Computed example of a mutant assay.
Amino acid sequence: MTKQIKITLVKGFVNQTARQKNNVLSLGLHKIGQSVVREDTPVYRGMAHAVRHLVTVEEVD
């Protein structure tokens, strides 16, 4: 079984760049406090890292 990460949006992305908004939306996050569980792959890690000031990342068992 692959590892998974839980990504939670903790800040809004209203005054962010278009690239950051698209990153958050492509992660599947729309509302503050919303969480998604994704596979722990370099793609999702990189997307979360690009908007690390807007999200929190936790590892899920």
Score class of each variant (00 low, 15 high):
Lys31Val: 10
Asn23Thr: 13
Leu54His: 01
Gln4Asp: 04
Asn22Ala: 07
Asn15Phe: 00
Arg45Phe: 01
Arg38Ala: 05
Ile5Asp: 02
Asn23Trp: 01
Gly33Ile: 12
Val60Tyr: 02
Asn15Leu: 00
Val36Met: 06
Pro42Phe: 14
Ile7Gly: 00
Thr2Asp: 13
Leu54Arg: 05
Gln34Thr: 14
Thr41Pro: 03
Val57Gln: 02
Arg38Tyr: 04
Thr8Ala: 04
Val57Ala: 02
Tyr44Met: 13
Arg45Ile: 09
Arg52Gln: 09
Val43Asp: 14
Asn22Ser: 11
Asn23Ile: 06
Glu39Trp: 02
Arg52Asn: 04
Arg45Glu: 06
Lys31Ala: 12
Val36Cys: 11
Gly33Ala: 09
Arg38Gly: 02
Val36Leu: 07
Gln16Thr: 13
His53Cys: 02
Asp61Gly: 14
Gln4Gly: 02
Glu59Val: 13
Val24Glu: 01
Asn23Leu: 07
Leu27Arg: 07
Thr17Val: 03
Arg45His: 08
Gly28Tyr: 01
Thr17Gly: 13
Tyr44Gly: 04
Pro42Gln: 14
Lys21Ala: 05
Pro42Ala: 12
Phe13Trp: 09
Val10Ala: 11
Asp61Thr: 13
Val14Cys: 02
Ala48Val: 14
Ser26Pro: 00
Met47Tyr: 10
Val37His: 10
Gln20Arg: 13
Thr41Asp: 11
Ser26His: 12
Ala50Lys: 10
Gln4Ala: 05
Ile32Trp: 01
Lys3Pro: 04
His53Arg: 09
Met47Asp: 06
Gln20His: 15
Val10Tyr: 00
Val55Glu: 01
Asn22Gly: 10
Phe13Ile: 12
Val10Thr: 15
Pro42Trp: 15
Gly46Arg: 08
Gln34Ala: 08
Met47Gln: 11
Leu9Asn: 03
Lys31Gly: 05
Leu27Ala: 02
Glu39Tyr: 08
His53Ser: 09
Lys6Val: 06
Gln16Trp: 01
Asn15His: 13
Glu59Tyr: 01
Val10Phe: 04
Met1Ile: 07
Lys21His: 13
Val36Thr: 15
Gly12Leu: 03
Lys3Tyr: 07
His53Thr: 15
Ala50Pro: 13
Thr41Ile: 06
Met1Leu: 09
Gly33Ser: 10
Gln34Asp: 03
Val55Gly: 00
Lys6Glu: 07
Glu59Asp: 04
Gln4His: 09
Leu9Lys: 11
Gly33Trp: 10
His30Thr: 14
Ser35Thr: 15
Asp40Cys: 03
Gln34Ile: 14
Thr17Ile: 01
Thr41Cys: 03
Glu58Trp: 00
Glu59Thr: 11
Val37Thr: 15
Lys21Ile: 10
Lys31Tyr: 05
Arg19Ile: 09
His53Lys: 14
Val57Met: 04
Val10Lys: 15
Thr2Trp: 07
His49Gln: 15
Arg45Val: 10
Asp61Ile: 05
Val60Gln: 07
Met47Gly: 05
Val55Asn: 01
Lys31Thr: 10
Lys6Asp: 00
Leu9Arg: 06
Glu58His: 03
Leu25Ser: 12
Ala50Asn: 15
Leu29Gln: 10
Asn22Trp: 03
Glu58Pro: 02
Glu39Pro: 03
Ser35Ala: 14
Val24Pro: 00
Asn22Glu: 14
Lys31Cys: 04
Val51Trp: 00
Ser26Gln: 08
Ala48Leu: 08
Val51Gln: 00
Val14His: 08
Val24Thr: 13
His53Gly: 06
Lys21Asn: 02
Met47Pro: 08
Asp61Tyr: 05
Asp61Arg: 11
Gly12Tyr: 03
